[in-house]
């Protein structure tokens, strides 16, 4: 039966090219369940702050995405160092995937921080503020990292140069993080509430819940992006072989159609063709 025979390789191919797994599907279910729980805690169970009022609820998003931004770009740096050391494509893909997810989280950090700033500080943005501008620089450097990776080049050359950019970009992480203490009078941004125990009770728990939920989203995005990037490189590396196979298959179809042959299901009427 040609239909069965035709379906099998396609199914196998689809399985090979899938970016999901049992683990990521379970993680996805956890995220779908936990996001409404987080929203309930953030908007219903916790109270507004005495001075900041409802603006304090941004704490449950802004701080976790900022922390995960550091994690993502640190992972890019680790992957970059490991690539330069081991020359492993796996580490290069880790660095790439972490940078993409990190740019998303860093963008969210900037946006939620700006939304926080308007009611709290009385300004959306301050160009002279050390914390704000160093965070923007961090964001731009890793957008540049991704732009560099999209420049056509030999994969090894591109990976090596991207690794150098990833490592240099990550130097800014401790500067951003420590800026509120090193230049206390050059920023409106508060110092850490976590290290000094300045969050308590339900506020602390909801912050922790936000970190877990956004952490799960981060991991899901990272794994999925890693698999996608891996498959993209597979396609790039095997692009010529695939193109030749496609053209060979077309030639068979064309020849057999010209002689009045019955071609059903592509390769199936041509056992000698590529499988």
């Amino acid at each position: 039966m040609s239909s069965v025979g035709a379906a099998s390789p396609q199914t196998a191919q689809a399985a090979d090219y899938s970016v999901s797994s049992r683990g990521t599907r379970l993680l996805g279910v956890f995220i779908l369940v936990s996001v409404p729980v987080l929203l309930l805690f953030a908007f219903v169970f916790t109270e507004a702050d005495d001075t900041m009022e409802d603006a304090v609820r941004l704490l449950y998003i802004h701080v976790p995405v900022a922390v995960l931004t550091y994690v993502a770009f640190s992972l890019t740096a680790v992957g970059s160092v490991a690539y330069l050391w081991k020359r492993s494509r796996w580490w290069d893909t880790v660095a790439h995937a972490a940078a993409e997810v990190g740019v998303v989280f860093c963008g969210l950090t900037l946006v939620t921080g700006s939304i926080w700033g308007r009611p709290t500080w009385n300004t959306w943005w301050e160009w002279g503020d050390v914390r704000l501008v160093t965070t923007l620089v961090l964001f731009l450097v890793f957008v540049g990292y991704l732009a560099f990776r999209s420049v056509p080049a030999e994969p090894e050359t591109r990976a090596k140069r991207a690794a150098v950019i990833g490592i240099i970009g990550a130097i800014n992480i401790p500067i951003v993080n420590r800026s509120v203490e090193w230049w206390e009078n050059n920023t409106l941004h508060q110092q850490s509430s976590l290290t000094d125990g300045q969050l308590e009770d339900l506020t602390l728990f909801t912050w922790f819940l936000g970190t877990v939920v956004l952490g799960a989203i981060f991991v899901w995005l990272l794994i999925t992006r890693f698999r996608l990037a891996w498959l993209e490189e597979e396609i790039d590396r095997h692009g010529l072989v695939t193109a030749l196979e496609e053209r060979r298959a077309e030639s068979h179809v064309g020849v057999e159609a010209a002689v009045g042959g019955s071609v059903v299901g592509g390769f199936q009427d041509n056992p000698g063709g590529p499988q």
């Binding site: 709290t120 500080w121 009385n122 409106l188 508060q190 110092q191 509430s193 300045q198 969050l199 506020t203």
Partner: peptide
């Protein structure tokens, strides 16, 4: 501008 502190 208001410089809010870290105490919640």
């Amino acid at each position: 501008l208001v410089k809010h502190d870290e105490d919640y």
